[in-house]
């Protein structure tokens, strides 16, 4: 019955339905992860600071994200006086769109990828660079000096760290010999020692730290800087508009974690490759690696004090960019001489 109905549909409609189903299959788990990531953050930081964390809503506080989401949905969206109405509303949308659209090219295992395009690293770079507009427009449209200051800080920081991040990705694509994320994972096949974290270790460090700076997370969260500029670019936002900014920040953190796992830690490949059963590549390994880097984000937030603004700029321009340029030369040389183990 269902099969015959399916066959009646025109072919264009069939592909559309399949693609939409795939998008839903990525978005729903992603949104649930974002919701529970906020709970995990409060629990993990609570544990690190010897507190209990949220434990009132549901068993062990497990329903807390649902309660938070309901609260945010029913709160009033307040428009500041003389704010630009259209830009004020569109800013959170602009910040979440690239955070979600980037997931289209993330390979979950050999076959599970929504769009297996040739230039997926370029696509990711282009989209993450677009994310800064949500912040800038929010800061400007709010008609508030704190929001504008936060937006300025954030824009300068994101543009500076994008350069180091882009150079780190250039190193990955030289080592992997491809712009396609799936091919880059396949190039790391072998064992845990064949993964790119070892030959590209300086780039891994630069990428991870720039990733934290790009997502405006502690210790680089001067864009929010609650002790100086209240909450930075989203100080005027309330209710659902604020929630969307929040969603975008967490979706971006998960994205950076997933990309680190793919580009430096072999994605879906098993660390015990060669051993039966345990050495099988699977989605499970990818999720485990991503979860570890997601935990690192929380760990860093609980550990490091906030950077001073001029030190952030110094780190980005005067430390990271020279490191990446030097290591790019090293990697290019290693590829040319076909250094055994990784590039032969």
């Amino acid at each position: 019955m269902i099969e015959s109905l399916w066959g009646v549909l025109p072919e264009a409609l069939q592909t559309t339905v399949i693609i939409v189903a795939k998008i839903v299959a990525i978005m729903v788990p992603l949104m649930l992860t974002v919701a529970y990531y906020t709970l995990a953050e409060r629990k993990v930081i609570g544990f690190m600071q010897v507190r209990i964390g949220p434990n009132r809503v549901g068993p062990r506080g497990l329903l807390q994200p649902i309660a938070d989401a309901l609260k945010l949905m029913f709160k009033e969206i307040i428009l500041p006086t003389n704010a630009n109405r259209f830009l004020f509303i569109i800013a959170p949308v602009l910040s979440i769109t690239p955070a979600l659209a980037a997931w289209a090219v993330i390979p979950f295992n050999e076959t599970w990828v929504l769009a297996d395009i040739d230039a997926s690293i370029l696509y990711i770079l282009a989209l993450t660079s677009f994310g800064v507009y949500g912040v800038i427009i929010a800061g400007w449209a709010s008609n508030s000096k704190y929001a504008l200051l936060g937006a300025m800080r954030s824009a300068a920081q994101m543009v500076s760290y994008e350069i180091a991040m882009g150079f780190a990705l250039v190193g990955v694509l030289i080592a992997g010999g491809s712009l396609n994320l799936g091919d880059i994972v396949q190039a790391q096949s072998g064992s845990i020692l064949h993964w790119f974290w070892l030959p590209l270790f300086p780039l891994l460090m630069v990428y991870l730290i720039s990733g934290i700076a790009e997502t405006n997370r502690a210790p680089f969260d001067v864009a929010e800087g609650e002790s100086e500029i209240v909450a930075g670019f989203h100080v005027e936002y309330s209710g659902m508009t604020f929630a969307v900014f929040f969603l975008a920040e967490y979706a971006n953190m998960i994205l950076i974690a997933a990309l680190t796992a793919i580009m430096f830690f072999g994605g879906w490949l098993s660390p015990f490759q060669g051993i039966p059963l345990l050495g099988e590549p699977s989605l499970f390994w990818f999720l485990l690696k991503t979860a570890f880097f997601m935990f690192c984000f929380l760990w860093f937030r609980a550990t490091f004090p906030r950077y001073r603004y001029d030190q952030i700029m110094r780190l980005g321009w005067k430390v990271f960019i020279p490191i990446t340029i030097v290591w790019l030369l090293v990697v290019a040389l290693a590829v040319v001489v076909e250094l055994p183990w990784w590039f032969d």
Partner: peptide, 11 residues
Amino acid sequence: AMTLVLVYVGA
């Protein structure tokens, strides 16, 4: 197309 977005829009 990607470099246009990356360089002109993004930076």
